[in-house]
Amino acid sequence: MALKLVWLTTILCLIATSVCAMTLAEGIFEVDDEKPVDSTLVVEVGEEAPNFTLPSLSGEKISLRSFREKKNVVLSFVPAAWTRVCSDQWPGYNIVEDIFDEYDAVLLGITVDNIPTLYAWTKAMGELWFPVLSDFYPHGEVAKQYGVLRSNGVTERALFIIDKEGIIRYIDVHDINIRPPLEVLVEALKDIEDNG
């Protein structure tokens, strides 16, 4: 009987995924406001960006160095999957691929969540055009290299722009409770493309 119920539920889920699949809004875990910034940067604008290689959702491992001489790179660290502000940041980036293209930039989304969690979370956002990387193990190693790992093990809400020479050109370690305005990032990208 129990097996039949499981089977029936599975079939119903397959037929009506919109009912059974968790939407992004339904899955949000509410957290109280946190200390705006809880780490100390160990890199600065003008320095060479620390290289890293991280697993992505697609299964491919992605190295920062692979974009050298080819693309500007925007690193978007967000604190945690399934939390409100984080879930309210990448879906916006997802509709502005043309702006990133205009400034010859790729976007790499990074969290300290593991791949299965990132898979479920980003699937609820829709199809993302940019790679999502997991800094899960060793935990937060890349975040530590940049100085954006908070004391509770999540990352800051931070944006870095690294130019085609591998140099850090822009850093915004934002208040973790607030989404960074898109226009500031776009202005910084424009400045790099216009002024080299």
Partner: peptide, 10 residues
């Protein structure tokens, strides 16, 4: 609405 809201986009 919000530009960042997938449900609004859909």
């Amino acid at each position: 609405f919000s530009m960042y809201c997938p449900a609004c986009q859909t």
